[in-house]
Simulated scan of single mutants.
Amino acid sequence: MRPADLAREHGLSTQAVRNYEESGFLPPAERTPSGYRVYTEVHAAALRTFIALIPAYGHATAGQIMNAVHADSLDDVLLTIDRGHEQLLRDRATLDSVSNAVANLTDVEPVLEPRTIGELARRLDVTPATLRAWEEAGILVPQREPTGYRLFRAEDVRDAELAHLLRRGGYPLARIALVVDQIRSAGGTDTLGTALTDWRRRLQSRGLAMLTASARLSEYLTARAATP
């Protein structure tokens, strides 16, 4: 096969195929005496796998998985996939929590122990700088100790979980601030309901993409193992 043969199946340029090979997403191609690349069905399977991994895990993680495959680091491959499923499960749980909160907007969550900015950042797996940016955007309104340190109450944690969810869904900070304000004021929930419905569809799409990617990866590993 020529680079054009692989590229045509996915609507890519031949340069993109060469770039993927150079990045380690495809196994190295053999060369003709004149220097032209020669690809095989194994390379085609590798490209199908990489393309399927992108909507499931993102471009960067898809590349990491393929690099690990070609380094024969199967444990790293499986660990990366497990982390993707773990994140999907966490997103689903967060979405369910937010949906429940929306259904009971007038109920005030009991304040247990306020969290510091570091504790909340670790909970969400974001940086403290991200939380400060959300505060500047009006998404978070933590209390302040006399020393100036931020304290996040139960409702602040809820707002942060919602912000995290919507950011992963691609929503801009200004729109998230609007949605969070709706929760605080117990006003209309049309915008919030639409956002949550849209994100649930995104989670379903990602879950289905993971199934497709797993099938492609299994096929590629089998083809790779059968190659002399």
Rank of each mutant, 00 (worst) to 15 (best):
S97M: 10
A209Y: 02
G35D: 07
R184C: 02
A68C: 04
N104F: 07
L47Y: 01
V111W: 07
L178N: 11
T49E: 01
Y220V: 00
L131V: 03
R202S: 10
G188D: 15
A133Q: 10
E21S: 08
R224C: 03
R83I: 02
S205P: 00
A133W: 03
D91G: 00
P146H: 11
T227P: 00
D72R: 13
A16W: 07
G118W: 08
L6Y: 07
L112F: 12
S205R: 14
S99N: 08
V141T: 13
R132Q: 10
D181K: 07
E9H: 15
T40L: 07
Q143F: 08
L196S: 00
V108K: 14
E119C: 05
N19K: 13
A93V: 04
P228G: 06
L140F: 07
L173R: 04
R167W: 03
D159N: 12
E136I: 06
L53D: 01
T49V: 04
G170W: 04
R115A: 14
R184K: 02
V42F: 02
L208N: 11
G35K: 09
R158D: 13
H10R: 10
R123I: 13
R123P: 01
Y149I: 10
H43W: 03
L211G: 06
E41V: 05
L192T: 07
P110C: 01
G24V: 08
T49M: 04
R216D: 11
N104R: 15
G58A: 04
R153I: 06
L208A: 14
H43L: 02
G58W: 00
G138N: 09
L140Y: 07
S23H: 14
V108D: 12
Y36E: 05
L217K: 04
A213Q: 01
S97V: 05
Y149W: 13
A60G: 06
T80N: 06
A62R: 00
R150N: 09
A133H: 12
R200W: 00
V77Y: 03
R144S: 11
L165Y: 02
G187A: 10
A7C: 11
G148A: 10
R92K: 08
